[in-house]
Computed example of a mutant assay.
Amino acid sequence: MSDIAIVRDYVQSLPKYITLCERNYLRALKLLPPEEHGAQRAIELANVHYVIEVQECAKYTTDIIIRQTSSSSVFFPSLHLAVRLYHDAKVAEVIHHDYHQRIKPSYRYPNPNMHQKDEKYQINAFLADWFMACLESGKVPLNWDVNNGLV
């Protein structure tokens, strides 16, 4: 008999991913500058400076850019994330990172660009960690009225 290895594609857990994106949305609302094109908010985290900038506002979405403006080390590349907030679904997800093309839900592994199988989930989990670090120990004025005065 011959042993046949069955290679299965990575299948993302949608409930786990949606929960992560919902939590990112709530965290993002606390850190967002006023929702108008070009508005910015400066954040200092561990002596590194970041800027959150509103790129585009639409009825149901807001696109923001999170970029690092000062370098912590010459060995680490600067952070650059494009995040889209979907107000109707109340989720936020990374749509671009470090000027790359759109992130696919999953990748075959190995691949020429060495993306991880669950790279989209990992990048959004990083965004969640970054938001938590900003909220817990970053120097930033927070938006406490995340319901726009409805409550």
Rank of each mutant, 00 (worst) to 15 (best):
S13Q: 08
E53Y: 08
R8A: 04
G38W: 06
L45H: 06
D129S: 15
E56S: 09
D63Q: 14
Y10L: 10
E53F: 14
V146T: 13
T19P: 03
L45F: 01
I6F: 13
S137D: 03
I18W: 15
K120C: 07
F126R: 15
A46Y: 10
N148Q: 05
D145K: 05
A28P: 07
D63S: 11
W144F: 11
K104Q: 12
T19W: 12
P77S: 03
A42G: 15
W130A: 09
Y17E: 03
T61S: 04
K90T: 05
S71P: 01
Y86R: 11
C134A: 09
E35F: 12
A125K: 04
S71T: 09
C57L: 12
K139A: 05
H49A: 09
P112V: 05
A58C: 02
E35H: 10
V74T: 06
Y121Q: 14
I6M: 15
K117L: 12
D98F: 12
A133H: 10
D98N: 07
Q55H: 10
A82C: 04
D3K: 12
Q12F: 01
Y25H: 10
A89D: 14
E36C: 13
R84E: 12
V83R: 06
D98E: 15
S72V: 12
D98M: 11
N113Q: 09
Y17R: 13
E93G: 02
P105Y: 10
R108T: 11
I52P: 03
S106N: 13
I43C: 15
L31A: 06
A133W: 06
N147Q: 02
D3A: 12
Q101F: 02
H49M: 00
V94A: 12
D63M: 05
E35K: 11
H37D: 07
F131S: 12
K104T: 00
F126Q: 07
K16A: 14
R8Y: 07
V91K: 08
N113R: 04
V151K: 00
I6Q: 14
A46P: 01
D129G: 15
I64S: 00
A92H: 07
V11E: 01
I6G: 10
V48S: 13
P34C: 00
D145Q: 02
D98A: 13
K30G: 04
I64A: 04
T69K: 06
I65G: 09
H37V: 10
Y10P: 11
G138I: 02
A125F: 14
V7D: 09
L79H: 00
T61E: 09
S70R: 00
L127I: 15
A92N: 15
I103K: 05
N24R: 07
G149Y: 02
